[in-house]
């Protein structure tokens, strides 16, 4: 019984939050990795693209709520997603046409594009604050739990509750659908193959009659869609604050780099690795240990390896370790 309780506690506090957070990071990292693969630069503005998209989704959610439209037990924000994606795609396409295209024409070095994207990041950063302000926003609605603690305890007779929040279930389901759709797109459609070809060898892709402008546009649209979805899921699960999204850039990049920049599979694996590392290292293991260990060995402290304040440091450390020992990442990126 104690063992089962320990298992439930582990699931409840480590595995479930880790998987949900990992799915959000994976979707963000996929966008970063696609931009890197096709456009060949690290897009620092990706975190703020997520914030912008989420802000638009929140505004549409409010609008729908004021009209009395809801999505049953699911968050209304899911209905607002397409609008957020459309607005964000329009924004990034305009940014590309107005800014990045100029540097591509000049055949600017990747590092120049990275700096340019940092500039875009600050502008977007301001734009988001202008639109929605800096306050924390909670915009989830619908049913709060898919499985709540008391029902679980009553059903199983365990002391530990297992809680599955609706937002967590939504995150995982949406992430799986997105990843499946993306891989189908990259593997099966002509445009997806063009993107892979372009990422593989730009010169040859051009010679094969592939229109580079079209590939670039499609890449931006997909990256924007992934960013908005990742941002919205994160916001639903936790809350929305522009500042936090700006900071999310670090774990998202760590995920993309750990998996190997340019590799979609790597981005997904990287997302889960970074998220689970963060949760495992900052979780107070006292509860699980108390169940598993005999009373004589029961821990006095919290058994927390790192205070949650050091969450960011975990991503940093993973980033540095990977770059030192496996510079191309797990899935051999670029």
């Amino acid at each position: 019984m104690d063992f089962l309780n320990a298992l439930v506690a582990l699931l409840n506090f480590v595995v479930i939050p880790g998987v949900a957070y990992g799915s959000q990071l994976a979707l963000g990292a996929l966008g970063v990795t696609l931009i890197f693969g096709v456009l060949r630069f690290s897009n620092f503005a990706h975190g703020d693209t997520m914030a912008f998209g989420t802000a638009i989704v929140i505004m549409f959610t409010w609008l729908f709520q004021s009209w009395g439209i809801s999505f049953g037990p699911l968050p209304t924000a899911l209905l607002a997603l397409p609008f957020g994606i459309a607005a964000t795609a329009a924004l990034v396409l305009a940014t590309d046409a107005g800014i990045y295209k100029f540097y591509r024409r000049q055949k600017a070095a990747p590092i120049i594009l990275v700096i340019v994207s940092a500039g875009v990041m600050f502008v977007m950063n301001g734009l988001v604050r202008l639109i929605i302000g800096v306050e924390e926003r909670n915009f989830t609605d619908g049913a709060r739990f898919l499985l709540d603690g008391n029902t679980f305890k009553a059903a199983t007779g365990l002391a530990e509750p297992l809680v599955i929040k609706t937002t967590v279930a939504v995150t995982v389901v949406v992430a799986v659908i997105c990843v499946a759709a993306l891989f189908w797109f990259l593997q099966k459609t002509r445009t997806g193959k063009s993107m892979r070809a372009f990422s593989d060898n730009e010169d040859l892709a051009l010679l094969s009659g592939i229109n580079p402008d079209r590939v670039v546009q499609v890449t931006w649209i997909i990256a924007a869609a992934l960013a908005v979805i990742a941002g919205t899921l994160y916001g639903l699960d936790k809350s929305f604050r522009p500042f936090v999204y700006f900071q999310l850039l670090l774990p998202v990049f760590a995920a993309a780099v750990v998996g190997g920049l340019g590799s979609p599979l790597g981005a997904i694996a990287g997302g889960y690795i970074v998220a689970l590392s963060e949760v495992v290292l900052t979780y107070a293991w006292k509860k699980v240990a108390t169940y598993v260990l005999p009373d004589s060995l029961a821990p006095d402290g919290l058994m927390q390896l790192l205070s949650t304040d050091y969450k960011v440091a975990v991503s940093f450390s993973i980033l540095i370790i990977v770059l030192l020992f496996m510079p191309t990442g797990i899935f051999k990126g670029k």
Partner: peptide, 26 residues
């Protein structure tokens, strides 16, 4: 060459503007 694709796929990449090009068709 497109290193990550097979030789046949390399050739199949070439002809532009096929019906698979549009997402609608796909």
């Amino acid at each position: 060459e497109f290193g990550s694709m097979t030789v046949r796929e390399n050739l199949m990449m070439v002809p532009a503007a096929q019906s698979g090009e549009s997402l609608w068709n796909a």
